Amino acid sequence: MSRPQTKEALTLLIENNYDDLKGLIESSSLEEQESHFQFFKDDKLKETHYKRDENLKDVLVHLYEWQCLLLSFIKALREDKNTQVSFLPAGYTWKTYPKMNQAIKEKHQKTTLEEAKRYLDDTHEKVLNEIECLTEESLFEKGHFKAINNTTLLLYVTANTSSHYVFAYKKYKKHLKERKAHGIKE
């Protein structure tokens, strides 16, 4: 799918991808939602997230925390478009963010699946509200914000909403297929 060119198209993409994810989750049993991913220890899957996320809750808190980062980033940019704020929290870089992702998982070990769902619903709505307050220029023009001079805010928004929802959808769908392939019933 091509990148959205308007706020309306962006909002629609985000909502559609979120609805797809929520629909997949809601169409599965609570046992499926709470079960450990079957591919968690699969050595053939090299991506870090396959080793990190053990269950749906881990995926949802990952999305939630990244949306919290996005909301903080947007707030800082809206307060001063010339700010040099970093998207990532202090102590992390784009080379070390996998450590941050692991810290997110560890932070949420006592978070329940139901809490994770509520947290994500909350940040999802907050992000949509922030998008509504942004101008088309602030979302789509390169160089509109000093902190992201070489790219657009759209990139950060889509990476932490619609694209992240697709990532989560595919991962959870893979989990459900793996359960079925191994003969695990609800």
Rank of each mutant, 00 (worst) to 15 (best):
Y97F: 15
S163Q: 14
L134F: 06
T6S: 15
I74A: 03
S27L: 05
Q67L: 05
M1S: 13
E54S: 15
A181M: 10
Y97R: 14
W66M: 00
S163W: 15
L30F: 08
E136C: 08
E26T: 09
F40D: 09
I104R: 00
I148K: 04
T151W: 04
E141I: 07
T83Y: 05
Y169W: 10
K117F: 10
V157G: 03
D42C: 06
Q109A: 00
Q38M: 13
P98K: 10
G23E: 02
L30C: 05
K107F: 00
T93M: 04
E106C: 00
K57Q: 00
D43F: 12
V85Q: 09
T123Y: 06
E186Y: 09
G183Q: 03
K173L: 11
H124L: 10
A76R: 14
N17P: 01
T158W: 09
Y50C: 01
L45I: 11
L69V: 05
S29T: 14
E79N: 15
K171D: 00
V127L: 12
H36L: 12
S86N: 14
S138F: 06
D42V: 06
L120V: 07
Q102D: 10
K46V: 14
E26V: 07
R179N: 07
E136P: 06
T48W: 12
Q102P: 01
K46E: 08
K110M: 09
L63W: 01
P4A: 15
L56Q: 02
K110H: 12
K146I: 03
E15G: 02
F40L: 14
N82S: 11
S72C: 12
D80H: 13
P98Y: 04
Y172R: 02
E186N: 14
S162R: 11
A168I: 04
Q67S: 08
E125V: 15
E137G: 07
L24M: 01
S2M: 14
D43W: 09
Y119C: 03
H108T: 00
R179E: 07
F140I: 02
N150T: 15
N160V: 06
R179G: 01
V166P: 02
H144N: 06
D20M: 12
A9S: 12
D121Q: 14
F39C: 07
G91D: 05
T83L: 04
L63K: 02
E178D: 15
L77K: 08
G183E: 03
N101E: 03
R3P: 06
H182Q: 12
H164E: 07
D53L: 14
L139Q: 01
L13Q: 14
K81Y: 10
L154F: 12
K174E: 10
F40R: 13
L176H: 04
L134W: 06
K22A: 06
H108Q: 01
L113Y: 08
R179H: 06
R179C: 10
K146H: 14
W66Y: 15
Q38H: 09
W94S: 10
L71R: 11
Y97I: 05
K180N: 09
N55F: 02
T83P: 05
Y64N: 11
S72E: 13
Q67H: 08
K51M: 04
E8I: 12
C68G: 11
D42G: 04
W66N: 02
L120G: 08
K75W: 08
